[in-house]
Amino acid sequence: MKNGRFTVGSMYGVIGLFMIYIFWMFLLNGVEHAPMVKGKMEDPHFSVSTWKWFFYPHILLGTISLAIGPLQMTKLSRKKPGLHKVFGKVYAVAIFINILMVPYLTLSATGGLGSSIAFLVLNFFWLWTTSIGVIKAAQRKISDHKEWILRSYAITWVFVTFRIVIIPLSIFLGPSLSFPLAVYIGISINLFFVEWRNRRNKDLPKNRKIRTADPLVK
């Protein structure tokens, strides 16, 4: 139980730091002053006023998805199926709406065409994993639903992983390489961890009593 609470608490701690970063970088002084956006504004075809209409919902919906994930893994959520279902719907809807925002944002992605392709690949994985997770829930295939929603949340967590990985990469590489690499590395790390957890859970002895309070063990 303590390990589960520590894991969820740690995840919310990271999400809190992510929110502080977003507020400081894009909201405190206005998005136009963010270094990333300043680079985009050098393009005469870039419209920051239009870009905002897609970027702000993208960040808001992404943060909502991030925040719901750990809650859905807790014992409290599992003991209240109605609450779990409501938050699950909010999670899925937030992602599906966000997916519609991404193609426009990729048109002006920092790093050029390579970054645009990388973010579209990320968007595909997001749509794929979340859609199957929703379908499995509708089919009442709970075990499969858990596995696919964890994969979906692994892709959602790239919001965080990307911003961690991009820091060292940017020291040695330009945006055209560092940004797409950070996306692919984030996808790989997160999915590898989830697949490892899923495989470990399947390999557990059948007679072992698993604590349902552990948010990462089925």
Rank of each mutant, 00 (worst) to 15 (best):
W126M: 12
E42C: 02
N123C: 14
Y184M: 13
I22T: 15
I132V: 10
I22Q: 15
M25A: 14
K80N: 15
S143W: 06
K206F: 11
T161L: 01
K52Q: 10
G133V: 01
L169F: 15
F119V: 10
N198P: 05
K141G: 06
L27K: 14
I155S: 03
P35A: 12
V102K: 00
I167V: 15
P205E: 08
N98D: 04
F18T: 13
I171W: 15
G111E: 03
F162V: 11
I22D: 07
T50S: 09
S108G: 01
Y56H: 06
K89C: 12
K89T: 14
R211V: 07
L28R: 12
V194C: 01
V37Y: 06
T161R: 01
Y184K: 09
H33Q: 14
L66Y: 06
T161C: 00
P44I: 04
W128L: 11
G39C: 03
W53T: 09
P81T: 13
T161E: 01
V158L: 00
V194H: 00
G82I: 10
R140P: 01
G82N: 08
P180E: 09
L100D: 00
K209S: 15
F26A: 07
V160C: 02
T7C: 07
K2L: 13
I97W: 04
L169D: 11
I97F: 10
H33L: 11
S178P: 12
G112T: 04
S108Y: 14
S10G: 15
S10W: 09
R5M: 13
S115Q: 05
I189V: 14
P205Y: 11
G39E: 09
P35Y: 06
Y21S: 12
P175Q: 09
I189W: 02
K2E: 11
F54V: 08
P35C: 08
S178D: 10
V165G: 04
M25P: 00
I155T: 02
I210S: 13
F18M: 12
E32C: 01
I142P: 04
Y104F: 13
L122H: 01
T7Q: 07
G82E: 01
I167Q: 11
T63E: 08
I117F: 10
S170Y: 05
T106F: 02
V160K: 01
N29Y: 10
V194P: 05
K80Y: 11
Y104W: 05
W24Q: 14
G133Y: 01
T161D: 00
E195N: 06
S65T: 09
N190W: 00
K202M: 09
T50M: 11
I22G: 10
V8T: 13
T106Q: 00
L113W: 05
Q72R: 06
I15F: 07
K52R: 12
L100M: 10
F125P: 10
T63N: 11
Q139G: 10
S143F: 05
M36N: 14
K141P: 03
L76P: 02
K218W: 13
I166F: 08
H58C: 03
S47E: 04
V121H: 04
P70D: 03
K79C: 08
I117D: 06
V102M: 03
S49Y: 04
G13F: 13
V93N: 02
S152H: 05
S65E: 03
I132D: 00
I22S: 14
S108H: 12
F18G: 05
L173W: 12
M101Q: 02
V194L: 02
L83D: 01
S47W: 08
P215I: 07
V90T: 14
F179Y: 13
H33R: 13
V183P: 00
S49W: 07
F96P: 00
